[in-house]
Amino acid sequence: MKTLTVIPARYASTRFPGKPLVLIDGVSMIERVYRQVQKSKKSNAIIVATDDERILNHVKDFGGEAMLTNANHPSGTDRCFEVYDYLNADFDLLVNVQGDEPKLAPEAIDSLIDFMEQNPMPIGTLARKANEPSEYQNSNTVKVVFNKQQQALYFSRSPIPFYRDKASSEFYQHIGIYAFKKEVIEELRKLQPSKLEQNESLEQLRWLDNSFNIGVELTTYRSQGIDTPEDINKL
């Protein structure tokens, strides 16, 4: 599959304004993410989708590709769809990589693309089996439950599944990378934000709400997203 990878990078983050430009050991977060995506063996093109000229110019300064997009998109994926439409190129697959994962494993991207090539799912994402009590309770750690066919049933910031009869913190951590086959993009971009999406602040719930299957590929990659300034120290 010919694959376009888009990295949405919004400047006006509520919890961490200017997050894509924060320096981590002298290198900006968005450059670190971009460099990791460049190591992917299966991504054919990479572009940063941003709402801010500071990010646009910074990406161009370090030699990356970037595009200025509408500032009013309700989600990062909507920003990716704008880039896909603008390029109007013959890509079979659109991959959305979060702009706040500076230690993203390129192997994770390649495994998701492999998964989409081998399965009929219109949308795909990644999940990692985990058992950290603090992360199980952490609302910044998104959890996913899925069926035996590896189709997502629900994503939540709450601890899921709930263990009624035993003490356990085993769960599947959602890794925020998405892949979309070209035939489903036009349908998805017409959808309005749903109540579940707005309640949890999770864009993928819009697709489940509208009966689109999301395939879940398992990975051992551990997500280390940056949500707050304090997360830089943890990283």
Rank of each mutant, 00 (worst) to 15 (best):
M1S: 12
K2G: 09
T3I: 09
L4H: 11
Y11M: 06
S13A: 05
S13L: 07
R15T: 10
F16V: 09
G18H: 07
L21K: 15
V27K: 14
I30V: 09
V33C: 10
Q38H: 11
K39N: 07
S40D: 02
I46G: 05
T50L: 09
D51R: 13
L56I: 03
V59Q: 04
K60R: 15
D61H: 15
M67F: 13
L68Q: 06
N70P: 14
N70I: 06
N72L: 12
N72I: 08
G76R: 06
R79K: 14
C80Y: 03
Y84A: 01
Y86F: 13
L87K: 04
D92C: 10
D92V: 07
D92L: 12
D92W: 09
P102N: 04
A105Y: 11
I113E: 01
D114H: 05
D114N: 11
F115I: 10
Q118G: 03
N119F: 04
P120Q: 13
M121S: 04
P122Y: 05
T125E: 05
N131T: 12
E135F: 15
E135Q: 10
N138W: 08
S139N: 08
T141V: 11
K143D: 04
V145K: 02
F146N: 08
N147Y: 02
N147L: 12
K148V: 08
Q151G: 14
L153Q: 15
L153A: 02
F155R: 06
P159V: 00
I160P: 14
I160T: 02
P161T: 00
P161A: 03
R164H: 07
K166P: 00
A167W: 02
A167Y: 06
S168P: 00
H174D: 01
H174M: 03
H174L: 04
F180T: 07
V184N: 03
V184I: 12
L188P: 10
K190W: 00
K190D: 08
L191S: 05
Q192R: 11
E197W: 07
S201I: 12
E203T: 12
L205R: 02
R206H: 10
R206P: 04
W207L: 15
D209W: 02
N210L: 02
V216P: 07
E217A: 15
T220N: 09
Y221T: 02
Y221G: 01
I226H: 01
I226C: 08
E230K: 08
D231Y: 00
